[in-house]
């Protein structure tokens, strides 16, 4: 059972709006294609990836945070006055945990359709030169967002 682009988008939107505002107490805004807040240049990112599987991979959920957003979120949760003082371990922890929660929401789609599945542990990595790919057929599984003035994205890829 694969997801259509529309289903992926709806799942992404419902997961983000259920998780981020509650966890960070910050509003989020979904960005339309062409919004100037979607970075056009190559930028560094913190990527959290969770694979949903039923023995074989069904889907990957990838959360991409601009580093400033990850620092702001971690400073808020861990109580640092200066976001630049957040240790790398805390940045990875918060991105991984948010990705885990989002993937849990996405997995609920399969579970509610009678398909048991498992979540992998989140893998967080630094992507030093990420470039948003606006090629038609690619971006239909990637939603772009803004939180606290910073861009982030959620990509759901089904197999």
């Amino acid at each position: 059972m694969s997801l259509s682009a529309l289903q992926s988008r709806q799942l992404a939107e419902s997961a983000i709006t259920a998780v981020l505002p509650q966890l960070l107490s910050l509003p989020v805004v979904v960005l339309s294609e062409g919004d100037s807040r979607i970075p056009a240049a190559v930028i560094p990112c913190l990527d959290g990836v969770v694979t949903i599987s039923d023995g074989r991979a069904l889907c990957t959920v990838t959360l991409r945070f601009a580093p400033d957003l990850a620092r702001a979120a971690a400073a808020r949760v861990f109580g640092h006055a200066d976001p630049n003082e957040v240790p790398a371990a805390e940045l990875k922890d918060i991105v991984g945990e948010i990705c885990n929660m989002l993937a849990g929401r996405v997995a609920a789609h399969w579970i509610s359709n009678g398909k048991p599945c498992l979540l992998s542990p989140p893998v967080v990595r630094i992507e030093p030169d990420y470039k948003v790919d606006l090629t038609p057929g690619h971006e239909d599984v990637c939603t772009h967002w803004c939180c606290a003035g910073q861009w982030f994205s959620l990509e759901i890829k089904t197999y």
């Binding site: 998780v19 509650q22 929660m101 997995a107 498992l118």
Partner: peptide, 27 residues
Amino acid sequence: LTADSSPEKIAIVARLGVRDYIIKPFQ
């Protein structure tokens, strides 16, 4: 307290006497 809402897992932990099951993020 988990991100995983699988009914199989909920059934397993219920058999082990878990009193409640909360899906993250919690309110």
